[in-house]
Structure formats: structure tokens, C-alpha cells
Design a protein around this nucleic acid. Structure first.
Lengths: 144, 144
DNA sequence: ATGGTTGCAAAATGTTTGCAATGGC
DNA sequence: GCCATTGCAAACATTTTGCAACCAT
């Protein structure tokens, strides 16, 4: 999906929910979708600042909460006291996280997804979201 | 494994690492292993207080960090800003977490574990720990 | 006796909130 | 103009840390 379409969709979402489409919200969303992969809030806050735009920490947190509720952004990794977010645009996937260098590798396994569904059925549990994090040491870090 | 054996093992670990076996550390470990399932730090701190024993918040955090390093305790669920811990004594398993009532259901799937290994092999990644959390709504909560 | 450990309070993080001013609609 | 939103600072929640007194070995 193109950036302009995404923005349009975001605007639509916002309006539909009776919220206001403010420059701050647009700036935050723009920055998030231009982030190719994963991001942390603190980075986002700093990267949003430009000559003619600045968004307060509070607004970033508040907007991110809206985006989470809308399902446009997910908390994909929780490590120590850090939370790493991701735009929910690509197909669902999970992560390998290197404890040494912090590298994040994405993977997807239909088989694992299916097995999860099977487990949920067994317990009559209605899944809404899942997160599979595998922590370890990546190839490059082991070679050193 | 029996409680007394666990304590012995814990003491051994502590000594082997050149640390001191203090009443506070024992009290914390005792409370953790008597906790059948999952626990949160704040609860632990409050439950440890008895007439003749009290452990400071700082010491609980410090001891928990030692236990994590030793691999005797794992962070198994991270939800919002909460962390839920578990003693690493039973066979590895993962969790279904009900977003309504907070219920935690444990499950284990050898097939999922094997698929994870396969993925790690593919990326030449050496896994150390993983966490699969499935958030959703449990049977009981859906019936209301 | 000595060096790790404890408790306390302060600091450091990460996140939320109250409130007055602002600005979409 | 109305009411949601913003920015700020203060409040909160969680975890870590500096330091003097303490205590396991």
C-alpha cells in the first residue's frame, strides 16, 4: 500500500471515530509509516522534530495508544523495560531477537500459526493477538 | 523436585557464584517456589512480609535479577507495563492470556517447539529463550 | 576483618494525567 | 463557538543505584 493511501486510510479512521485530524497526528503517523521496520517511542519522539513541527511526548504517547486501539500499530517485542513497535501493515510475522547486537529477524510460519489455532480451539479460547519472541545470539555475533 | 531439594540447589548456586546465602535471599526464594504458578514482583514483596521477616523492595529486585541470570526464574508474560514471572522448574510451556479476566492458561506443543528450532536453524540463530503469548478472550468470559 | 549485602531514599525510566490554552470542525 | 486536543509539568509506576550500616564467611 502506498504512503498516500495509508494516510488517507488513517484520516478516515480518525474521522470515523469522531476524532480530529490534527497536524500532530499526521506527523506521527507519517513518521511511523516511513519507518521501514520497528521503532521505539523515544526514537520516534526525537525523529519527529523538524524545523516547523514538534510534537510533545504526551501527544506521541496518546496518539500511539489510539493507533494501538485501531490495530494499526502493534507492540511486537518486549525486552527488559523496552517496547518495540511495528506498523501492522505487512503480513503477520514473528521475531528472532539477538541479545548481543539487538538485531531483529522477522519470520513467518504458517505451520506455527495453524498449531496455535489448534491449541486455541482445544481450550475454547478466542485469540486476538499473539507474539512469539525468540531471544538468542545471531550468526554474526557468534562468529566473533 | 521437592522444596527442600530446590532450596539446597539454590544455596549451592549462590555459593558457587561466590555470593552470600542470606536470610533475605532464602525468604524470597522460598516464597517464589511456594507460589504454584505465576507471580508479579509487587505481590511477592507484600507476601514476603511476616512477623519476623521483611525484605526491602530493592533486595527483592536485586535477588530476582540474580535468579533470572541463574535461569531459575523467567519473565513469561509482558502485558502493558506489567511483567509476570514464573519459576523455571516445570517443563517449558507457553501461555494463553485472557484480556478480560487475566486468566492464564499454560500449554505445551512439541510441534511448535520443533518448528521454532527449524526456523532458528534456517537463520543460523542460536536460541536461548523464547516466549509465545497468545492474548484473547477465554471461554468463560465469552459466555457472559 | 573484609567485602558482599541490606535498607533507605534518591534517581532514573517509561508512561499517564490534570489543566489551561489552543485550534479543528 | 464548542469541545477535543495539545503542551507542559506534575504525578505515577516500575526498576535501579549510591551510600552508610550490617553481617555472612
Amino acid at each position: 500500500m502506498k504512503k498516500s493511501e495509508l494516510l488517507k486510510e488513517f484520516k478516515h479512521y480518525i474521522k470515523k471515530s469522531g476524532l480530529k485530524y490534527t497536524p500532530q497526528r499526521e506527523a506521527i503517523f507519517r513518521k511511523i509509516i516511513s519507518t521501514k521496520g520497528h521503532f521505539e517511542i523515544e526514537d520516534l519522539i526525537h525523529k519527529i522534530k523538524t524545523k516547523n513541527m514538534s510534537v510533545s511526548r504526551a501527544t506521541v504517547y496518546r496518539t500511539l495508544n489510539i493507533l494501538k486501539e485501531m490495530g494499526l500499530v502493534n507492540e511486537v517485542i518486549k525486552y527488559g523495560n523496552k517496547t518495540i513497535y511495528e506498523v501492522a501493515l505487512k503480513e503477520h510475522h514473528d521475531h528472532l531477537i539477538c541479545k548481543k547486537c539487538g538485531k531483529i529477524i522477522e519470520f513467518h510460519s504458517d505451520e506455527i500459526e495453524k498449531l496455535q489455532d489448534k491449541i486455541c480451539n482445544k481450550y475454547d479460547f478466542k485469540p486476538e493477538f499473539h507474539r512469539l519472541e525468540i531471544f538468542g545470539i545471531c550468526k554474526e555475533c557468534r562468529q566473533k
